Amino acid sequence: MRIVADTDVCIGAGQCVLTDPDLFDQDDDGTVVVLAGSPEGEKVDSAREAVKLCPSQALSLVAD
Results as ranks from 00 to 15, higher is better:
Met1Ala: 13
Arg2Ala: 10
Ile3Val: 13
Ile3Pro: 03
Val4Lys: 15
Val4Ser: 12
Ala5Asn: 06
Ala5Gly: 08
Ala5Trp: 00
Ala5Phe: 01
Asp6Leu: 08
Thr7His: 03
Thr7Phe: 00
Thr7Met: 04
Thr7Gln: 05
Asp8Ser: 10
Asp8Gln: 11
Val9Arg: 10
Cys10Asn: 03
Ile11Gln: 06
Ile11Pro: 00
Ile11Asn: 03
Gly12Asn: 11
Gly12Lys: 10
Gly12Ile: 12
Gly12Cys: 07
Ala13Gly: 08
Gly14Thr: 10
Gly14Tyr: 02
Gln15Ile: 08
Gln15Cys: 05
Gln15Ser: 05
Cys16Arg: 00
Cys16Asn: 03
Cys16Tyr: 04
Cys16Val: 05
Cys16Ile: 05
Val17Thr: 08
Val17Asp: 03
Thr19Tyr: 00
Thr19Glu: 05
Asp20Trp: 00
Asp20Gln: 06
Asp20Glu: 09
Asp20Gly: 05
Asp22Ser: 15
Leu23Met: 05
Leu23Trp: 03
Leu23Arg: 01
Leu23Phe: 01
Phe24Ser: 03
Phe24Val: 03
Phe24Trp: 01
Asp25His: 03
Asp25Phe: 02
Asp25Leu: 01
Asp25Ile: 00
Gln26Ile: 09
Gln26Asn: 08
Asp27Val: 07
Asp27Gln: 03
Asp27Cys: 05
Asp28Tyr: 07
Asp28Leu: 13
Asp29Glu: 13
Asp29Thr: 10
Asp29Ala: 14
Asp29Arg: 13
Gly30Gln: 10
Gly30Val: 06
Gly30Ser: 07
Thr31Ser: 10
Thr31Cys: 12
Val32Thr: 13
Val33Ile: 10
Val33His: 03
Val34Trp: 00
Leu35Ser: 02
Leu35Ala: 02
Ala36Asn: 07
Gly37Val: 02
Ser38His: 05
Pro39Asp: 06
Glu40Gln: 14
Glu40Tyr: 00
Glu40Leu: 11
Glu40Lys: 12
Gly41Ala: 10
Gly41His: 04
Glu42Pro: 14
Glu42Ala: 12
Glu42Cys: 11
Glu42His: 06
Lys43Met: 08
Val44Ser: 07
Val44Pro: 13
Asp45Met: 09
Asp45Tyr: 00
Asp45His: 03
Ser46Asp: 09
Ser46Phe: 01
Ser46Gln: 08
Ser46Ala: 13
Ala47Tyr: 02
Ala47Phe: 01
Ala47Leu: 06
Ala47Ser: 13
Ala47Val: 04
Arg48Pro: 11
Arg48Glu: 15
Ala50Phe: 01
Ala50Cys: 10
Ala50Pro: 07
Ala50His: 00
Val51Tyr: 05
Val51Gly: 10
Val51Cys: 14
Lys52Phe: 12
Lys52His: 12
Lys52Met: 15
Leu53Cys: 06
Leu53Gly: 04
Cys54Ile: 13
Pro55Met: 14
Pro55His: 09
Pro55Glu: 08
Pro55Val: 15
Ser56Gly: 07
Gln57Trp: 02
Gln57Leu: 05
Leu59Pro: 05
Leu59Ala: 08
Ser60Tyr: 09
Ser60Thr: 15
Ser60Gly: 13
Leu61Ser: 13
Leu61Lys: 08
Leu61Met: 14
Leu61Gly: 12
Val62Asn: 11
Val62His: 11
Val62Lys: 14
Val62Gln: 14
Asp64Pro: 12
Asp64Leu: 15
Asp64Ile: 15
Asp64Gln: 15
Asp64Phe: 07
